[in-house]
Design a protein around this nucleic acid. Structure first.
Lengths: 132, 132
DNA sequence: ATTGACCCTCCAGTTACTGGAAGCCTTATA
DNA sequence: TATAAGGCTTCCAGTAACTGGAGGGTCAAT
């Protein structure tokens, strides 16, 4: 199978597939003409990677998850640990963003948004008190 | 004032200050010895940048905000537009992350997390049905 | 004169791709 | 058979916003 077919079947773009090969996530063979030769298994792996990435797992997480995926002797606790860790980081990000949102919403509400220069948003960002 | 003092007063690290000069956010003079020479105004600007960055504004947003900050003829609607746009992007990110969290929380809950290989997390990532 | 704390520049690495250039391979059509 | 379209290849560069480190001047105090 050529890279285009695999891209279509897995949902992962050709560029990304080549990149994944570069960093050693997949190892397709080569045809005589130099084209990458993929198997069904590669399609599965790439779809796996696509889903993992969509859930926000880093490439390194993906590497780990893929290894566990292929390891018949894995213990589910290993997988769970990776997922829990990732979950924690997502929650941290959410909290950070929510805090930003709270502040920003507040500032945006306070700002008249008219032709005058006075602006509570700039006032808040500014370390010196603006027009009082 | 040298870069170290400015860093302490503004809360922005020296490396970052140099970077901000590189990309044209600030333009300190130079002393005869080649050291950057900062003024109080630079400290204000850097503190401004620090706060804007903490609210998640991009560097380009910061550039715009800084220009508005210094423009006495600005209209608050300009500032508000930047903030509202940013707020929208934050909200998008939050939604994406919350969706990930929902899925991940669900998967983590379902996973036994023991010594056995069966794992709903991997099963979900996998395009082929695992052990049924 | 030397030590230690600053300061300087320049280069490289981070994350996960993505775009583009230059050029071969294959397949279909005129 | 010539050629054109589309697919494949490699390699280089750029993205965002820094951060770390090497190699090397400067300054203040001892």
């Amino acid at each position: 199978m050529n890279i285009g077919d695999v891209a279509r079947q897995s949902g992962v773009p050709p560029k990304t597939i080549r990149y994944y090969e570069d960093i050693g996530l997949i190892r397709p063979n080569r045809s005589e003409n130099g084209y990458r030769a993929f198997t069904e298994n590669h399609v599965h792996k790439l779809a796996f990677l696509g889903r993992a990435r969509a859930l926000g797992f880093t490439i390194e997480d993906c590497r780990t998850l893929l290894a566990l995926y292929e390891d018949e002797n894995r213990e589910s606790v290993q997988v769970k640990a990776v997922a829990e860790d990732h979950l924690r980081q997502i929650e941290e990000k959410i909290e950070k963003l929510q805090s930003m949102r709270t502040t920003l919403t507040d500032l945006v509400e306070k700002c008249a948004g008219d032709h005058r220069p006075d602006c509570p948003i700039l006032a808040d960002l500014s370390p010196v008190r603006m027009s009082e």
